[in-house]
Amino acid sequence: MENTLVKQLAGHRKETREQAFESLRKYLTTRNFQNAKQSQFDKLWKGLYYSMWHCDKPIPQQSLAYSLGELHLLYLKGKNQQAFIRFSKAFWKVICIEWYRIDHHRLDKFLLLIRRCLHFQIKYLHECEWEQALVDDYINKVLKKIPLSGDRKVYNGIPFHIIDILLDEWVKVCYGEEEDEEDNEDDKEEEIKEAVSKTPLSDFISIFQELSSDTNNIKILRDKIKEDLLKDQRLRAWDVLQSPEDEQEAEEEEAEEWHGF
């Protein structure tokens, strides 16, 4: 990506950023780019990464993170799902490669970028009505391939952050972010449960269950998954996971089942 466009995307002036994004959106939706090889998507995200690197004011950082994440939705038009997969994969690849170079002064804005990109990746799947083949591709070719692969080359902070934000972003996508103080809390929880029930959240939780049960993965990651995700009460309230009592009862019933002589 040209240095001029990178600097414009990171600029302080809103008008400059908007003009740069308009040019970027047109480029991303050209047939030549959408059908490009993975390496072209990787190069593009390397440039977008540096646009975030050079962005040094809170409001422009927030705006840039949102706009970069929203780019994933460009591939809803024409339902170019393979372009979405390559674009998503390129984001995680660049983040995982460059993470070791991020100093503590820049850490927060890149954590925000991860949150926004994960949000819009989930939103893309939601807008495609959770098409099973697409969900499987995203899980196997993107998440399990790079940030949630268990590979020791992936900095711990990346899967840790995904663990921390996944359920929050899932609710925002499938239920919404509106806060209404007059809403009955019980009614709201039932509505969230109903919304989540129409999504394949359990398929995503399975990724973490596999990671936590694989003793080849580092203990700190396995413990983080077990303590901060799999014990999250929301997963049981939404019937995504069984309660410990239900799991124990199921195990006892299985042990007592008679299989004949």
Rank of each mutant, 00 (worst) to 15 (best):
G47T: 08
C96G: 10
N217C: 09
P147L: 11
F33D: 14
K188E: 09
K188A: 06
A83H: 05
F120W: 11
I122F: 03
D151Y: 14
Q209I: 03
K57Y: 14
N184W: 10
E251K: 12
D168M: 03
I122R: 00
E177I: 14
E257C: 05
Q81Y: 08
G260V: 03
E245G: 12
D232N: 13
E15P: 05
D42H: 07
F41L: 08
Y100Q: 15
I205R: 01
N184E: 13
E178L: 13
L113W: 08
Y75W: 12
R115F: 06
T199A: 05
H119T: 07
D186S: 14
L9W: 01
L107W: 09
D42M: 06
K144N: 02
P159W: 01
K231H: 05
L44S: 00
E245N: 14
L24P: 00
C55I: 04
D214G: 08
A250K: 14
Q61E: 15
F41G: 01
W92H: 05
L235S: 03
R101D: 15
N3M: 12
W92N: 02
C96E: 08
Y124G: 01
W258I: 12
S88D: 06
I162N: 00
L241V: 04
Y175G: 07
Y124V: 04
L76C: 09
I192K: 04
K77A: 12
H12G: 12
G260P: 01
K109P: 00
I205M: 02
S206K: 14
I207V: 11
S212T: 10
N3Q: 14
E182R: 13
K153T: 15
F87W: 04
L64S: 06
G157E: 04
V94M: 04
P159T: 06
D214T: 09
R25A: 11
E210H: 00
S206G: 15
I85C: 08
D164S: 06
A133E: 12
G11W: 00
T199V: 07
E249V: 10
A83D: 10
K46A: 13
V6N: 02
Y66V: 05
E191I: 11
L76Y: 06
E254S: 07
L125W: 01
E182D: 14
L64F: 10
N217P: 06
H12R: 15
I225Y: 03
W99T: 04
L201I: 09
L44N: 01
C174P: 05
P147W: 06
N140I: 09
L48V: 11
E129L: 15
R116V: 02
G78W: 09
V142N: 02
P58I: 09
Q40V: 07
D42S: 08
F120M: 11
T16R: 10
E181T: 14
I205Y: 01
H105M: 09
D223A: 11
L68K: 10
F204V: 00
Y175N: 12
I218P: 02
H54A: 06
L241I: 02
Q132I: 12
E178Y: 11
A195F: 09
L111E: 02
K193F: 10
E15F: 13
R86L: 11
K89M: 08
F41M: 04
